[in-house]
Each structure stands twice: as structure tokens, then as C-alpha cells.
Design a protein around this nucleic acid. Structure first.
Lengths: 179, 179
DNA sequence: GCGATGTTACTCGGATACTAACTGTCCGAGTAAGCCAGG
DNA sequence: CCTGGCTTACTCGGACAGTTAGTATCCGAGTAACATCGC
């Protein structure tokens, strides 16, 4: 319902985990989602859009995953929002001036941008400035300052444990021939 | 689809017509809507909300209508938006931090506002500042500067013509008694 | 001539359908890794 | 011991429903004004 959708929130949280320097190896979307208790398939859908916007690079196949396409300091919050929500305008002017009965009768035509639209565009510009002023690295540092010491290592351990469990689940590898 | 709804646009256009000093008499919602070619019933619904927010005062009965409750310089664009869209937040944080698997296992609890939420709140504050900086009088003056001279008089004439037509439509007033 | 009164129809106000977008879910194509057989 | 090939199942990618909010519309209650009727 809000202008900035939930997908942006999911993407930002996942990207903050990816911004950790320890995450040199690509992280899978499923792991990141289950780590935070959010729908895994939806996260994959969101990361698809991030990949189209050239913000992350996808590695396919086994042990595949996503990694940042640029340094975390070079990705702003606004980039993420535009990549997912599609640069949706804050306000779509319907040019009501042109439908005014007095205007249509006379030969006068409105020129320039609508005054109301101009105010909205200015507000949108201020909002975008504030969103572009913060980068992923900035957010990651601010979050890390609040977390307990050694939290990044715990995250790495959790991911490693999950990978080990998946490897162990690989039962009786290939003792059977075809058909 | 946009965050600032179409109802806000309708309301602002109508309020600009009401902000004209010539509109000392209350103007009906139907006249204002048909003057601009927008749905009349929807305008009435929107003005209902404006009246609940104490921005306009409704005069009921015949020749009724709306007039501004305060001087046009004391009503900001933000007031109109909040009155109609209900101060909807730009972003609703779902507190994903609390759902993190590592956080739920340990006894650590996140405190303060989420860093992502803080960025969004700052952007929203900048946007609201820009919207609150412009008043109805300011917009009306800027619009009047672009319009041809004597446009306000034409609007008054148009409204008077409509009123006269309605009066003429009142045929054979009451020559018939009951039943 | 003046006042009370009934009619009028026009006003606002809330309750009711329709449309579109976001959220969430599912299934299919592609591919890097790992095991096994053969040399 | 080394190399080639094959199975594996896990990955991303796009296509498919459910639900909520906004948009537009309709009908009912209330009321100020007007013309009429009585005094």
C-alpha cells in the first residue's frame, strides 16, 4: 500500500547481508530468505529485478548465488528502489487544465508544467535526494554498530552449517546405473 | 497507483478555484466538477473528507456549497494531502530484524528504529517539508500569473450562467395542490 | 400589505460495485559440482 | 594415479492466482429558498 513496496525492504535487508565483507562467496537467495524468515520465492523474484538493473550479478548452477556488481559504497538506496519499483512517479498529473470548460471554449492553451505538478515534482526531488544520500556501505556500518560483536562470524557459521547439511543430505550418490 | 492519489489532484484544483477572492459565495461541488470535466460525485466524496479535516465549511440546502474554513495562505498542500490520503506513511517497516534466525535464537533484542526505516523516515520528512512550504494562496497566484487577464471574471460569469439556467429550469412552480 | 406555511428540488453524506497493482506461490530450463569407471 | 563422462539436484527465471486499496458511481436524508394562501 505504501509507495515504497515491501519488495524493497526485503531487497535492502538481503543486500545488507551481502554487503558484509565476509560474504566474498555468492550467497543463494534461499539462504538469505530463510535466514530472515521471509518468503524465499519472492526474494528470488526481487533479485531478478536487481540483476536486470545491473546491481547484482547472478551465478547459476550448484553453489550459485548473488554478489554485488559494484562496491557497496557505490550503490544507493535510491538505486534499489528504482530497480524494484520502476521509478514510479510520486504523482501522475492528468492535465486537468486542458479539460476546463472555459479553456476548451477559448483558443487559449496552457503552456509549461502545471503549478500543482511542479510542487509535487519538487517534493519528489527532495525525497530522491535524501534517498540517494545513503549508500549500502553506510547502512551496513550503522547496522553493524548496533549489533553484538562477532555477529558477522555467526552469520558465516550459519551459512556454512546450512551448506554442510545440504551436502550430507546427498544420500547414496550414484550407485545405480541407468534404468 | 501513485502515492499521492487522484483525489488530491481534484481537491487541489477545486480549492484553487475557491481560493479566488471573487468566490465569496459558497460554490457547489457539482459546479466545480463540471467546470473542469471531472467526476462530480467523486469530488463530493473528496470534499466530505476535507470538511472532516476542518479545511472547508459546508453550507447545506439550496444554494449551498463549500467555502474555505481558513485564509488560503494558512492552508498548505500537505494539509490537503493528509486530509484525503490519511497521513499514509511512505514506507511501513515490518521489523524484519526480529525475525532473523540468529536473533530469535539468542537473547539479543534490536532496540531503536531500524536503520532502513530511519532513512525512509528522513526522506519522508524532506518530502513533507517541501509540500508544507507551499500554500493555496501561493499556488493560486502562480496559476493566475499564467492565465489570461480577466479569467476570474469569466469563471464568475460561467457560474452565474449556470445558476440562472437552473433557476429558469424551475417550471410552473406550485400551481398544483396535493394529490 | 404582511406573515405563516407547504412545496420544491437541490445540496451534502454514506454505502455500494469495479478495476488495477502488489504480494505470494508454483513449475520449468540451465548448469556447476561431484562420483565412478576406464586408461 | 589421472582423465573423461555422467548423474545429480540445486540454482535462477518467468508465468500463475489471491487480496487489498483506490476509483468511480448510486441513492437517501436534510434543508434553505420560493410561491402561495390566509389574515
Amino acid at each position: 500500500v505504501a509507495h515504497i513496496s515491501t519488495g524493497v525492504e526485503y531487497a535492502l535487508h538481503c543486500l545488507l547481508y551481502l554487503a558484509e565483507p565476509a560474504s566474498a562467496a555468492p550467497a543463494g537467495a534461499r539462504d538469505l530468505a530463510q535466514l530472515q524468515g521471509i518468503p524465499a520465492e519472492y526474494v528470488a523474484k526481487v533479485f531478478t529485478r536487481l540483476e536486470k538493473a545491473r546491481l547484482v550479478i547472478a551465478s547459476e548452477g550448484l553453489r550459485g548465488g548473488f554478489r554485488l556488481a559494484r562496491p557497496a559504497a557505490a550503490i544507493s538506496v535510491l538505486d534499489v528502489i528504482d530497480a524494484i519499483d520502476g521509478e514510479k512517479p510520486l504523482f501522475d498529473c492528468r492535465e486537468i487544465r486542458g479539460s476546463c470548460a472555459l479553456v476548451t471554449r477559448t483558443a487559449w492553451k496552457p503552456r509549461g508544467t502545471c503549478a500543482i505538478h511542479a510542487v509535487m515534482l519538487e517534493a519528489e526531488a527532495r525525497m530522491r535526494e535524501a534517498l540517494a544520500a545513503h549508500s549500502l556501505a553506510d547502512l551496513a556500518a550503522r547496522v553493524a554498530a548496533k549489533l553484538p560483536a562477532g555477529f558477522g562470524d555467526e552469520v558465516a557459521d550459519w551459512l556454512a552449517t546450512r551448506a554442510a547439511a545440504r551436502a550430507a543430505n546427498r544420500r547414496t550418490p550414484a550407485t545405480k546405473v541407468k534404468s
